[in-house]
Amino acid sequence: MTADERNKRTRYAMAGVGAIALAITGALGTMVAQPSIGGAQTVLLPAANLGETVTRTATPSELETSVAKPTVKVKLPKGYGNG
Rank of each mutant, 00 (worst) to 15 (best):
M1N: 04
T2Y: 06
A3P: 05
A3L: 08
D4G: 06
E5G: 00
E5Q: 10
E5N: 07
R6G: 00
R6M: 09
R6Q: 10
R6T: 01
K8F: 11
K8H: 06
R9G: 00
R9T: 06
T10P: 00
T10L: 11
T10W: 07
T10D: 09
R11L: 12
Y12V: 13
M14K: 10
M14T: 05
M14C: 11
A15E: 05
A15S: 05
A15M: 15
G16K: 12
G16L: 10
V17I: 15
V17M: 14
V17L: 15
V17N: 04
A19T: 05
I20N: 02
A21E: 03
A21H: 00
A21M: 08
A21G: 01
L22K: 03
L22V: 03
I24C: 05
I24A: 08
T25P: 07
G26C: 04
G26A: 02
A27H: 01
A27I: 02
A27Q: 00
T30Y: 10
M31T: 09
V32Q: 06
A33E: 04
A33D: 04
A33K: 05
A33Q: 02
Q34S: 14
Q34V: 15
P35R: 04
P35I: 02
S36G: 13
I37A: 12
I37C: 01
G38Q: 14
G38F: 12
G38L: 09
G38E: 14
G38C: 07
G39I: 14
G39D: 14
A40T: 12
A40I: 11
A40W: 08
A40S: 08
Q41S: 08
Q41H: 08
Q41P: 01
T42E: 13
T42W: 08
V43N: 00
L44T: 15
L44W: 05
L44E: 15
L44N: 10
L44V: 14
P46I: 01
P46F: 02
P46C: 02
P46D: 00
A47G: 12
A47H: 12
A48C: 06
A48I: 08
N49F: 05
N49W: 13
N49I: 13
L50H: 07
G51Q: 01
G51T: 01
E52D: 12
E52V: 15
T53I: 09
T53P: 09
V54S: 07
V54I: 15
T55H: 09
R56S: 14
R56W: 12
R56L: 15
T57V: 12
T57H: 06
T59S: 04
T59N: 08
T59M: 09
P60Y: 03
S61G: 07
E62K: 13
E62T: 12
E62Y: 11
L63V: 14
E64I: 14
E64Q: 08
E64D: 14
S66G: 10
S66M: 11
S66Q: 15
V67P: 01
A68K: 12
P70L: 03
T71I: 11
T71P: 01
V72F: 00
V72K: 03
K73M: 07
K73C: 04
K73I: 12
K73N: 13
V74A: 03
K75P: 01
L76I: 02
L76V: 03
P77S: 01
G81Q: 00
G81R: 03
N82K: 09
N82T: 07
G83F: 13
G83A: 15
